[in-house]
Design a binder for these strands. Sequence first.
DNA 1: CATGAATGAGAGTTCATTCAT
DNA 2: TATGAATGAACTCTCATTCAT
Lengths: 218, 218, 218, 218
Amino acid sequence: MDEKYVKQLLEMEGQELKLTEKKVNILVAAIEIFAEKGYSATSTSEIAKRAGVAEGTIFRHYDSKKDLLLGITKPAILKMVVPYFASQMVEEVFKDEITSFDGVLRAFITNRIEFVRKNIPLFKIVLQEIAFHNELQETFQESFLNQILPKISETIYIAQKSGRLKDFSIPTTLRFIMSTVMGFIITRFLIMPEAEWNEKEEIDNMVECIMNGISKNN
Amino acid sequence: MDEKYVKQLLEMEGQELKLTEKKVNILVAAIEIFAEKGYSATSTSEIAKRAGVAEGTIFRHYDSKKDLLLGITKPAILKMVVPYFASQMVEEVFKDEITSFDGVLRAFITNRIEFVRKNIPLFKIVLQEIAFHNELQETFQESFLNQILPKISETIYIAQKSGRLKDFSIPTTLRFIMSTVMGFIITRFLIMPEAEWNEKEEIDNMVECIMNGISKNN
Amino acid sequence: MDEKYVKQLLEMEGQELKLTEKKVNILVAAIEIFAEKGYSATSTSEIAKRAGVAEGTIFRHYDSKKDLLLGITKPAILKMVVPYFASQMVEEVFKDEITSFDGVLRAFITNRIEFVRKNIPLFKIVLQEIAFHNELQETFQESFLNQILPKISETIYIAQKSGRLKDFSIPTTLRFIMSTVMGFIITRFLIMPEAEWNEKEEIDNMVECIMNGISKNN
Amino acid sequence: MDEKYVKQLLEMEGQELKLTEKKVNILVAAIEIFAEKGYSATSTSEIAKRAGVAEGTIFRHYDSKKDLLLGITKPAILKMVVPYFASQMVEEVFKDEITSFDGVLRAFITNRIEFVRKNIPLFKIVLQEIAFHNELQETFQESFLNQILPKISETIYIAQKSGRLKDFSIPTTLRFIMSTVMGFIITRFLIMPEAEWNEKEEIDNMVECIMNGISKNN
DNA sequence: CATGAATGAGAGTTCATTCAT
DNA sequence: TATGAATGAACTCTCATTCAT
């Protein structure tokens, strides 16, 4: 993890992230340890030690330990949730190109896998802490539920109307897709990261499973 | 949560769980607060307060806070993982009755949903803490991976050989099923417990999705 | 350590020591652990455990942990200090028989060595705790300083007047004797109990040293 | 007790003792209270209170209460044991000048008395706690037994060969000397510090006693 | 901007003692 | 007489946070 990585990942829209070397060290250390032991079980002194800064320095950059957590996780949630879906391409494809539905699905899966691969500790932190911090749930709400979900929903709706997908409710269809993808990602990167994985084949299988599961059979 | 509930849930095979009223109170309070705030963020003094006992009383019953966590979660993992699969019925059905494959799946899903419904806080605690405590991972390993998984794997293997299921690898097939079920349970009980749910329909949909996803289309 | 041992050792003049089996166990356990770790560092629950009784049982027999310490150490101090000197024989010998002065000294040394050998833990406890407990200092005061010291002092006084001993002050003479004996006992039983000791020779040497040290040379 | 005193006393060879005012206060308070009530019976909160610092401050300077004890007692043992004997003078005198044997003894006694007079609480702590802490026994072992004892032993050996001292075994001879000196110091400073003492005379008597006790009579 | 000593509240845990059984 | 569950104060130690330098 280097400065550029941290910068592009944690910078939020509309505000530049000022990064001294010390601040990068703090962020990197915090991400590592939060992921290892959980937010609550991590002490600021341990972060300072691993970051190679004085204990007080953390509090020059963040008002509190919680503030540090949010400074890490809020932008991370946005980057995890938004980017792919936000692109115009997706909408187009979902809406219009019958033949490429599974292609789009494959692209989405591949894209999210690559994102998590590069951000495993961050992914783990968000997964763990979103249950306990309202601010994170709200961030998720505001980005995914308010911005992304409507677009996807519309897309699925159209696909259903056009006769390609079964008439499961939209949340159900979406949950089916997301469960399958998240189930793979969590197994792949958190539960059994050491196992040998044939990712290409797994992706193929997921696409096939999902398509068979939610598509109309003719 | 009352005494009987706690007793049957947390009693481990081969050893009786001695339950005084105070001990039940401690367990109930600990389960509630661990689920609300996470293990690390929970203080023993808060548990004692909610349980209506002196703080020292907790340590008469459990050697440490960690020991209390394990006393709650280890038996819970066993009860979550083992019971359903351990029954003979399942094996029989899986192996022999072609037509009832989806029936078995439906029974399994229904059964696990009912279990979680009665044990939401416990389910949440296990989900959160298994990432940080080796003892829990080992308990899961010993029960699910060592005892249950082989049976399921054999069943799937036979179903594949008999031509009913696609030749996805067994872990892949299983992960596909489990992801779908866990995705529903987590959404239903943890993410959106307040929403209106038509569970019967959701179960039907899951069964249909999964069967279409993993079965051979003729 | 058995019942008889404890009984004769801890029974104080004028009051019988009622000893149930449990009480003996408590006393034996307390003596052992107090000696091992010191009074303050010993917990009543540890005593109860080693004694094989319930925690509450100790407090049926002794009002407090301190009371237990005093119940052990006060009679022990008396038995350590009084017995030998209280006998008439000694006084006689000290006063009258010139030639046997060193014989008496040898008898005294031998006698105290045997006493400590049989009561090492007790001796250690008294040595450690007398510094911190006024009651023990008073017990020592009342027995040794008030009862024994005057007799010895008189004896030494007479011996000096009769020309056998140097005119060191009586406390100095006594301190010289006691230092030598205590120095041996502490080295022998507490500092280097595992070493090979030729006790007979050491006693001879002590007697010789002391006699040469405090006697007049003609 | 002031800073300079504490500093020169507790500084160990080869490592400087960094002393802020608070740290000095902690050390002084700890020495006082450990001496008054014993290590185990002393609470860190009491030390903090007397030192005028927050309880947490103690643990910034010492990892644990035990660490504080060792930080006080280990250097104290070295300073108690090593200095006098380490000087060349002693060896020379012991080896060569027959007539000044008693002069050397007097110098040693005087020197150790002065040391203890300036460090009574420290002396008391070491005397009490060395029985219960292996680390202290090892410190004593490494300094006295390994460094000092061989020199003294050699000196006594030579004195015996040259016909001045009796052929008691060397440990016996040494124990005789040390018992007499320690007996005086303990009586003088711990048992009866309030009494009127004619130290010059007591020292003369000790020297006379010891010399008569261990020398050959011609 | 960075430090790290200092804080004091609160953490988990132990303790001597009590008391209903 | 003996028990052992229960207590709550006190214990050692950690923590997030502050602030003078």
